[in-house]
Measured scan of single mutants.
Amino acid sequence: EPREEEAEKYIKRANGDYDKAQELAKKDGNEEIAEAIKEYKKR
C-alpha cells in the first residue's frame, strides 16, 4: 500500500522514532501519512 510505504520512509528518516516521523509528515503537510504512522505505531 502506498500510504504504508510513505509511512515507512518517514519512520526511516526519523531513525525509527515514530513520534518524530509523525511530526516530519505533518511538517510536509501529509496529515494522512501522519495518521498512517500512528496506526503503524500501534502494531
Rank of each mutant, 00 (worst) to 15 (best):
E1L: 13
E1N: 15
P2A: 14
P2S: 15
P2Y: 14
R3F: 15
R3Y: 15
E4V: 11
E4L: 14
E4D: 14
E5I: 14
E5S: 13
E5G: 10
E6G: 07
A7G: 03
A7T: 07
A7C: 13
A7S: 05
A7N: 02
E8I: 15
E8R: 14
E8H: 08
E8K: 14
E8N: 07
E8L: 15
E8D: 06
K9P: 03
K9S: 11
K9D: 10
K9V: 10
K9Y: 14
Y10W: 04
Y10K: 00
Y10N: 00
Y10M: 02
Y10L: 02
Y10E: 00
Y10P: 00
Y10D: 01
I11L: 12
I11V: 06
I11K: 02
K12D: 06
K12M: 11
K12S: 09
K12A: 12
K12H: 09
K12C: 09
K12V: 08
K12Q: 11
K12T: 08
R13V: 06
R13S: 06
R13L: 14
R13N: 06
A14N: 02
A14P: 00
A14M: 03
N15H: 11
N15D: 08
N15L: 08
G16I: 01
G16F: 10
D17L: 03
D17V: 03
D17I: 02
Y18S: 03
Y18V: 05
D19T: 08
D19P: 02
K20E: 06
K20I: 12
K20P: 00
K20A: 09
K20Q: 08
A21W: 00
Q22W: 15
E23A: 10
E23K: 06
E23T: 07
E23L: 10
E23D: 08
L24F: 07
L24C: 03
L24V: 03
L24Q: 08
A25M: 00
A25D: 00
A25T: 01
K26F: 11
K26D: 04
K26A: 09
K27I: 12
K27D: 09
K27Q: 14
K27A: 15
K27Y: 10
K27E: 12
D28K: 02
D28F: 04
D28N: 04
G29Y: 03
G29I: 01
G29N: 06
G29E: 04
G29S: 04
G29L: 05
G29F: 05
N30Y: 13
N30I: 04
N30R: 15
E31Y: 15
E31K: 08
E31L: 14
E32D: 13
E32I: 09
I33M: 06
I33Y: 03
I33L: 10
A34K: 03
A34H: 04
A34Y: 07
A34N: 04
A34V: 14
A34P: 02
E35V: 07
E35F: 08
E35P: 02
E35C: 06
E35W: 08
A36Q: 11
A36K: 12
A36Y: 15
I37N: 00
I37D: 01
I37H: 00
I37E: 01
I37F: 02
I37Y: 01
I37A: 00
K38G: 08
K38N: 07
K38L: 13
E39G: 06
E39F: 07
E39L: 11
E39M: 10
Y40Q: 05
Y40D: 02
Y40N: 03
K41G: 06
K41A: 13
K41D: 03
K41M: 10
K41Y: 07
K41S: 08
K42L: 11
K42W: 08
R43S: 07
R43M: 09
R43A: 08
R43T: 07
